[in-house]
Design a binder for these strands. Structure first.
Lengths: 192, 192, 192, 192
DNA sequence: TAGTAAACGAGACGGTACGTCACGTCTTACC
DNA sequence: GGTAAGACGTGACGTACCGTCTCGTTTACTA
């Protein structure tokens, strides 16, 4: 992600106003209805200024989202892996059940036809958290709560994928109960 | 999905030409670049004729896709649940690794801001196959290959979600090996 | 004008309903907003039926108008030419100041790009009344109220043109006073 | 009429290209067949750019016409009113007998259902020339060639209306002879 | 009195143009 | 010299009607 404040000359206000406007609009009218023109108008900023620092509306909104979310859904390690996972995943679910859910699905949708945005999402969201989660699972292996021969990246996918699946395909609403069910099933396995 | 030929009066040629054009364009230029105008022009059909029978480009393409795929990825029951699952899921992966993959992700992307399309996807793809898969798992329970207390719908999600997750987030390419890994992990579980 | 009732087979009701619908719509929404589809729908008649008997919406409305107007604006001869002219022209002005005025200007407007309609208007309205008026003027010559060497067709134009001029260019509203002014000026001439 | 070059920011090329295209198309295919899309395509200009500066095709063509005609049909005062009128009216007739005639009738036709265009035509064509003509007639009164008690606006209508009448109702072609006849009749009057 | 052909209502069809929206680029005037 | 403002060419949108073309379904004349 470009960092306007540092690289360019005069910017600060425009930069912040743009991100704020993008986030507000996304929550007010829904991600799909947000336009660059709308952001510029709301922010009191020229369109060109936005295009100077971001390549697409998706990357603007992504930066705004990342700024808002901050460290609200970090992992915590207490020695009980399942409890730690339940906590973090429940926090994620809580977040996705706010207006943030629509913004998230909107970003992923847009990323399907925008490789730059795809990469940005992976870089700023997916990979960092995957790494954190994998670290937690590794700690779980050390503590004997997870099999030693499990591929940790695959395990992370097994745990998180069901959340995205329900979210993107609208199978059913996400909930804390669902998180518990997924964890229980993933840890125990299907086999008798 | 509306069935033009039956409900209104005449159609056949227009109906088929529209679906064919939609599918061809989607594979040629990519789902996101397909437009109703493009479909109409390619099919030699008036735009209004398309709007008469489908509410959006998404539903047109979905119908075209469903027609093409047909029974190519049905389930088969041989008495070995893991083998049956491996077979069907590998077929799905094979399909998603063709141009069909892009069309699929395009449809799901569009569905994020189009409830009608969401419902159509669930109705024609997700729910039917979920049911088939659940039936297979139930057979697995009868044969003692799956625990009796497993919630089958949750199990289906656990198996398929990782595929969609990789596909939509571009974590990594799908492959037969990946299918095997997911199945092994899901059956065995993370617990030591 | 085609005469549906006689030539074709079964028709009467459709014929009348079409004319009635055309006239009603023209007065309700304005001539320019009338469409063949609208007439057909209002009349409970198929579009094809309209196209079978009339070549354009203009000719339909023209026939409807002619039927309505009937003999309401005929000439009368009393021996006082100026009085007779005043009477007839005032009747015309009265008619043009109703919704009929808009229909009339609409027809003339459409006729600018439709030679068939032009001819129909000339045939059913302009030429018959021009002839009647010329006859009246000839009677005026016989009575010594009009110069013998005046070209009667030119005289008719001199009298009626100012009405159409005001009507079509919206110079000013038509009125009985205006009729009197025009007649006075035309009879007296500009010369001292 | 809006003046693009001045009010908004940039324009010149688009403005001129639009007017040129509008005029060319009107003369080539006929006023009624001109479309905004056609003008935009011919001018190499976006449709929106046209809609930004003009409310309808009529006003575009009107501006193009006014620009072309310029001062070609102004009045001249030589001391002989009838000669001056004959000269100007013949010039008008000459103009209306070119492709300009069709454009003119097209504009007036369109104005029947477009008050904005009506006003524009009155403002840029009818009222200015009516005033010029009235001034000439007033000079005629001063010179004793026209009665003192004649209402000049009514007189202008009496002279010009027959031209429009013939033009719009296609009674007969316009000609210099016709102009002479109208003037002779209008000056002499119908009375013996 | 039944059979049949036309005219009929309904409305789908391929088109054309509409007027609007947002895109991403470009230009101008201001601070 | 970076900005806001917004004009520009472009291209797609979804809508309205056009005039033509099937569809069954009535009639009303013939045989």
């Amino acid at each position: 992600m470009t960092s306007p404040a540092s690289s360019g000359r005069r910017s600060r206000r425009s930069h912040e106003a743009t991100l704020a406007a993008a986030f507000e609009l996304a929550t007010e009218v829904g991600y799909a209805q947000v336009t660059i023109e709308g952001i510029a108008a709301r922010a009191g900023v020229g369109k060109q200024t936005i295009y100077r620092w971001w390549p697409s509306k998706g990357t603007v909104v992504l930066e705004a989202v990342n700024e808002k979310v901050g460290s609200g859904i970090d992992f915590r390690s207490t020695g009980d892996v399942i409890a730690d996972l339940t906590g973090q995943m429940s926090a994620v679910v809580g977040l996705l059940n706010t207006e943030m859910g629509d913004i998230f699905t909107g970003l992923i949708a847009e990323a399907q036809s925008d490789p730059v945005l795809t990469e940005a999402i992976l870089d700023t969201i997916v990979r960092p958290r995957t790494r954190e989660c994998a670290d937690l699972l590794k700690e779980g292996q050390r503590l004997g709560q997870i099999r030693d021969d499990v591929d940790l990246d695959a395990a992370v996918e097994l745990l998180y994928a069901p959340l995205y699946y329900r979210l993107l395909l609208r199978i059913a609403p996400l909930s804390t109960d669902h998180v518990a069910d997924v964890l229980a099933l993933a840890f125990r396995g299907l086999r008798p």
